[in-house]
Design a protein around this nucleic acid. Structure first.
Length: 492
RNA sequence: GCUGCUAUAGUGUAGGGGCCAAUCAUGUCGGCCUUUCACGCCGACGACUGGGGUUCAAAUCCCCAUAGCAGCACCA
């Protein structure tokens, strides 16, 4: 019997459906949104939230999604990351309408900086860091603050001409020294950097994010910004720039902090670990990168669903792998072919057992997909930990029953008949098994470590796909070679 | 220290004065189905941080406390 396709689709949609996102103020006529990562490494789960949620809103309201590469700090630019970020965005299935590189826009930043200084909204500051900090905390102006506009314009030109060296001059926005929040007081928007060189351009005067972001959000027509609440202070700071220029700021939403257990998320730690060989690469299973998830067999749609469900709440949350796995299982279970994987295999001889071929379905819910034929002729590979209970009985799945006995310290395995009912009555576990001569060495890589074992020949045809090792869990077949198979554990 | 944001079951989420002895998902437990401990189905468990106030009525509004988080970088 076959279900109507619409019905199947309906059921699947129900399973993976996510609730509707909360409305955004002023979004009815469409939105322009952006995802603005720093190209210091590949995207990880933390990025995915911003990337996906912005995309979800663009889909909901219609409009434009801008991928803006924020590469205004040459110290934090990894040239490989430009490509990795785009690959990761593509993997997530996000439709990007425009890609902007901030490193292409320095002339714009310079022009507007000059304008801002000309309005008296910013000034060149040559104070030492520590000194300024103390003055700021005391709500006192630094000597540079009182300079004439003309003087500041002159100093700004000197900055551009390379007459200041690194760390000796900056541009600050004139805000409000009495502001109760010290973070608001005359914050910097440009700095001088002599090294390292920027991989995409030449510059010594670099904008800081609060300036470049404000300028770009305005000039690119961004209507709504969804970002983490670590940017709340930045939003307020940027407000000063919008006000000086008379621009209308976008609508902001700041979601709460998301902690993620069990994986390395810090780009610098990841890079360090890769360099010293502790991690295999950016897709090492112990990392929280999207490429690591992909390698484990997590579907992008599962990540998207998880992020949309989490939404834009301002509460701090802890990311739940269980919830993500449940979403992924819904995608993967109907598709994954089933195979036997025998961990820590022990080869045994089963006496009195008739030679025969077992027939197991590739998928228990879809007989039409075909079957696996596994031939038994006297000997079998069994999971070590399943044959410890003696005396006892196990049933080799799709084959027959085996009774276990111990005689003079030696394990004995005897044919126990074909009857499934007998096995059920005896409470015998139904276990996976393999013929020794047709078993493929298989390493199952899990976050906790590698598990050695053997699996069916059929898994050789599944490279790149997710299968289910019966009674073990889902796994992505990572590589197939004459020596064997390497599989990455996905989840149960 | 100063400033700000947040607070619903183990986790995520809905609910923004009465319809809430609080939604949904996930999880856990039990049962059914099943030659996988998967999937599916049925059932159970499990929460409004605390204290004041406003109101006929508070998870919902206000105040305080507590806790968590963030910012006070010439990072983003």
């Amino acid at each position: 019997m076959e279900l109507a396709p619409e019905l199947v689709e309906e059921i699947q949609r129900k399973k993976t459906r996510v609730k509707e996102l909360p409305a955004l103020e002023g979004a009815e006529k469409g939105v322009v949104m952006r995802f603005a990562p720093n190209p210091s490494g590949p995207l990880h789960l933390g990025h995915a939230r911003a990337a996906v949620l912005n995309d979800a809103y663009v889909r909901k309201y219609g409009g434009k999604y801008i991928l803006r590469i924020e590469d205004t700090d040459p110290k934090r630019v990894d040239t490989d990351a430009y490509a990795m970020v785009r690959e990761d965005i593509e993997w997530l299935g996000i439709s990007v309408h425009e890609i902007i590189y901030q490193s292409d826009r320095f002339d714009l930043y310079y022009t507007l900086a000059q304008e801002l200084i000309g309005k008296g909204g910013a000034y060149v500051c040559t104070c030492e860091n520590e000194q300024f900090r103390e003055l700021k905390l005391a709500k006192k102006p630094c000597p540079c603050r009182d300079g004439e506009v003309e003087t500041n314009l002159g100093l700004w030109q000197e900055m551009l001409d390379g007459e200041f060296s690194e760390g000796t001059a900056s541009v600050r926005v004139r805000t409000d020294l009495d502001h109760p929040d010290p973070a608001m007081r005359d914050y910097p928007i440009f700095r001088i950097l002599n090294s390292p060189p920027h991989p995409r351009m030449e510059a010594q005067v670099y904008p800081l994010m609060n300036f470049s972001v404000a300028v770009d959000d305005h000039t690119l027509g961004v209507t709504h910004v969804i970002r983490g609440k670590d940017h709340i202070a930045n939003t307020r700071r940027q407000r000063y720039i919008f006000d000086y220029f008379g621009w209308k700021p976008p609508v902001y939403r700041h979601y709460g902090r998301m902690s993620i257990e069990g994986v390395v998320l810090s780009t610098s730690q990841m890079r360090e670990g890769i360099q010293d060989g502790r991690f295999q690469g950016w897709d090492d299973i112990r990392l929280g990168t999207l490429r690591a998830l992909a390698r484990r067999g997590i579907r992008p749609q599962a990540v998207r669903d998880a992020m949309e469900e989490i939404g834009i709440g301002e509460t701090d949350i802890s990311f739940s792998w269980e919830n993500l796995f449940a979403k992924n299982r819904a995608f993967v279970d109907p598709e994954a072919n089933r195979y036997f994987f025998v961990p820590d295999p022990v080869e045994v001889s089963i006496s009195d057992a008739p030679e025969q071929t077992a027939h197991a379905l590739l998928h228990p819910g879809d007989a039409e997909r075909g079957r696996r034929d596994i031939h038994f002729s006297g000997r079998a590979l069994l999971p070590g930990e399943e044959i410890r209970d003696v005396p006892g009985m196990v049933r080799l799945k799709d084959l027959f029953n085996v009774t276990l006995r111990q005689e003079h310290g030696i394990m004995e395995f005897t044919y126990g008949g074909e009857s499934l009912a007998v096995a059920r009555e005896a409470g015998a576990p139904i276990i996976q098994w393999l013929p020794p001569d047709a078993a493929v060495p298989c390493t199952l890589v899990t976050p906790a470590g590698e598990r050695q074992g053997a699996c069916e020949q059929g898994a050789r045809t599944e490279a790149g796909r997710v299968v289910q090792f019966e009674r073990i869990g889902f796994a992505r077949i990572d590589s197939v070679s004459p020596e064997g198979i390497i599989a990455y554990f996905t989840h149960k």
